[in-house]
């Protein structure tokens, strides 16, 4: 009896493993588009940005709103200026820097109901 259970389990796991590869998953959920169009480095290493960007934004948001610090380093405006798409001028939209990743990770963002999601200055000329 036990042996059968183990065999069944192994079989199941094997199929689960086969079903896993990326190409199959990508068929169902669009893999995020992370296009870095602007040269130069971000305010922190990529690994740190991926893990902690919301912590940085949260920290800066309270410093700016409550105390009036206006350091450019972690400002949301700065993120948008750099990462807005060259075509649409925005970090939102289908291939938007913020929205495509957040859609993939299924994490709701509440920033751009109030904040502008578009680049307003800079070389791209995507002014609205």
């Amino acid at each position: 009896m036990n042996r059968i259970a183990v065999a069944l389990l192994t079989l199941l796991l094997t199929f689960a493993g086969l079903a896993h590869p990326n190409d199959q998953r990508a068929g169902r959920v669009a893999v995020p588009v992370v296009k870095i169009e602007k040269s130069g480095t971000c305010v922190a290493p990529t690994e740190e940005m991926r893990r902690d960007h919301m912590k940085m934004l949260f920290h800066q948001r309270d410093r700016t709103v409550r105390q009036g610090f206006r350091e450019p380093r972690f400002s949301l405006k700065g993120c948008v200026e750099c990462h807005a798409s060259r075509e649409s001028g925005s970090v939102l939209g289908k291939e938007g820097f913020c929205s495509s990743c957040h859609a993939y990770a299924s994490v709701k963002m509440d920033c751009f109901e109030c904040h502008s999601s578009s680049r307003h200055q800079g070389p791209v000329g995507a002014r609205r």
Binding site: K77, E113, C114, H115, S116, H120
Partner: peptide
């Protein structure tokens, strides 16, 4: 169409 320096929301 919010201004970048003036976030506003519903």
């Amino acid at each position: 169409g919010q201004r970048p320096d003036v976030p506003r929301g519903k």
